[in-house]
Amino acid sequence: MEKAQATRPDGTGADASANKDSVVCYCFNKTRGDLDASYKRCGSLAGVQAETRVGTNCGGCRLLLESMFGEAPGDILAMRGSPLTNSRFCVKPGTRIMKGFVAADHELDTLIYASNGVPPQFGNQDTTIPVEYALLDANGRRVTGRRFEWRTGETFCFDTSKVDIPRPLYGMFLFQIGRENYGASRFNLVWTNGVSSCSTHEVNDSGRPSVVLPLFADRAFLEGPNRVFVSVQNPHPRPIRLLFSLFDEANRPIAEFPIALDPGSTRWLDVNREFYGPALARAPSARVAMRIASDPVDVSQSPTIYFFFHNRNTGIWTANHL
């Protein structure tokens, strides 16, 4: 199904017209190669638009045109202010530190992947940047890490099964970039037991100081195949306190459990055993849900939270972020 148009990010491959088959304008089916050729003939974006009509219908490609040819399409200024089309590229100069949860124990290992790829319509761009990563343990102490130059198009991988680290380890992975260009940034996490793998992306902090694990549990759930786990992390440079509150469907409080988190620290919690079980022991016929809130509730103290389901019958782990 693929056109097998492999192009190298530095343009030095067999086909130097990098990404020429990447469609830019879907309305008129014009590729990057079509538009580059048109620009050579016309010498201006206005000329390209007159010749190919790109960017004159739905407008979805106008930002790309602006980037490709260094000038705004004729009517792009008129689009400013519209929440649907007002846009600028995601150039975000400056240092950023992304964070994610790492588990390395008797059952799970964690892999981290990031690609310094370039959006295909952009063609050749140098996206080399300095990167530093670090793995912190549950107490926020550095276990390992290094600095390197991340070259254009390179894939970064960190695999807990391939490094010498103490086990069990439940910690925080930090990935610091100095981004000044159009390259990719975000990393994904994969948790695997060798048979089942699940994946989601880094979360700097939730930005939400009070969240509910979107699930009600009752006795039948506890006796069923699913175990629920959460990782909670403090991504801030100061200590935070979290309050785990169990409540029923009528929002009546059942139990509360405070937890303190030092900067950079992580807690890996068995929700069935530590929260649902004790709450259902107090209210056996209830269906209970769990809120995780900073105490006091304050957006500047939002934790980073991932939640996991483990199915005992199949061995399958699934995960997401809150």
């Binding site: 199904m1 693929e2 056109k3 097998a4 148009q5 492999a6 192009t7 190298r8 990010p9 491959g13 990098a18 990404n19 088959d21 990447s22 469609v23 879907y26 089916n29 690609s115 310094n116 790829g117 370039v118 295909p120 254009t152 198009g153 390179e154 894939t155």
Partner: peptide
Amino acid sequence: ITPEGETVHGES
């Protein structure tokens, strides 16, 4: 996107 950063385009 390959591990080396090469891009392979699927069909439009």
